[in-house]
Design a protein around this nucleic acid. Structure first.
Lengths: 211, 211
DNA sequence: GCATATTTGTGATGAATTTCACAAGCCGCG
DNA sequence: CGCGGCTTGTGAAATTCATCACAAATATGC
């Protein structure tokens, strides 16, 4: 294992895993770096460089074993266990994530949903009740939650993560449009839809203005 | 304008714009690169490098004019116009995006919602009816849509973008977990929640294993 | 008006990432 | 068993991206 793995590399590992799973269903037993690159995602050389950071999984002349590489990648990505996730904010974004079938399939269990709106508290999403926001610490501690999904308005997000981290949360998936300040041992992944839309706006606007 | 602007730079421009808008509300008239960096997002030097790619907007010794820089950034990002967006897939993710207030506020108008499920077709989201998926080309052409939000299952996504692009769509925001193949003049922005979760899983799993 | 404290803009430096190129290894076949 | 066709693994080169350092320019205080 290398000293530091870049974020881009990790995203690509996740991509390779998806390709492997598709391939596994089709019965293939080995796969080349070319195929793992998969369309326009990246290049064969990049695939080999990425994988070689963690070991030597392939056979020259043949490729990578589909099943074994998949299990290696799951191990590298930390997906051999299940994660206990607390969703803070029962709005649309939270709902979208919660209902996402891949969420559970990939090892992420939503063990609690919190919201500060009394009108929502008490209703149920499937088998999970919506609980009041005040119970955050209690929920994190008692259920042994690992990850917090922050799907609250921007001005409430910092407070939520501070409380969650103090109660023992180990990672944050942040949908709020703010840069969260957290201790350095708590990783944060940001998803910002406005940013994505604006990046798209930029790209469309500047088509052909370069090259 | 530079030959090519990196994706990271564009995301940061979007971030600067948000900081400027917050600052504008607080009445400030100028802002330093230090403040634009805003917390842990980036550094002052990075801010100046980013902005200098597009011109010389600041005054030495003073900083950047809040209002003017905001309007310059909006111009650079292509946000002076409004965008007509077609949402394909009336599921949870589509619903989340649709209901997002910033969506409209930032200049993105959802002009149509399509879904292939006959049970959903005919109902209304606010003032927008859900129409059958077959009408994609018609909708894109007749409403002069610019952007397509793809919120359909992975195996349907490629077909949707092909039809949309053929009908005149100019940019794609893709929530499906596949790499879309599109003509080079059609930019695609991908949002992949599984990838974000797996990146978080990796980060939490490997805390302290380096450094 | 002059010294001083700020802050931008940018060339130079450094670090990180991607691409290239090719030797080394593996399989199958005759 | 040797040969030819593939494909990996990896040092080196190239490219991209981020940081540094500082001159140039502006404002402020006296």
């Amino acid at each position: 294992m290398p000293r530091r793995v870049s974020d881009s590399t990790v995203r690509r590992l996740s991509h390779y895993l998806r390709v492997l799973e598709d391939l596994g269903r089709s019965g293939a037993t080995t796969v080349s770096s070319e195929d793992l690159a998969g369309g326009g995602g990246t290049t064969a050389a990049q695939v080999r460089k990425d994988l070689s950071q963690f070991g030597s999984f392939g056979k020259r002349g043949l490729g990578y074993p589909v099943v074994e590489l998949g299990s290696r990648l799951r191990s590298i990505l930390g997906l051999e266990r299940r994660w206990r996730v607390v969703l803070v904010g029962a709005g649309r974004i939270g709902s979208a994530l919660f209902a996402y079938p891949n969420f559970t399939r990939r090892g992420f269990d939503c063990v609690a949903v919190l919201d500060s709106d009394p009108a929502k508290v008490g209703s149920w999403w499937g088998a999970v009740p919506i609980r009041p926001a005040e119970e955050l610490e209690e929920v994190v501690r008692d259920l042994g939650a690992d990850l917090i999904v922050v799907a609250v308005p921007a001005d409430a997000a910092q407070r939520v993560v501070e409380r969650a981290v103090a109660a023992g949360a180990r990672g944050i998936l942040n949908f709020a449009a703010v840069t969260l300040r957290v201790p350095s041992h708590v990783p944060v992944t940001n998803v910002n839809l406005v940013m994505e839309l604006e990046a798209l706006s930029f790209a469309v606007t500047h088509i052909g203005k370069d090259a």
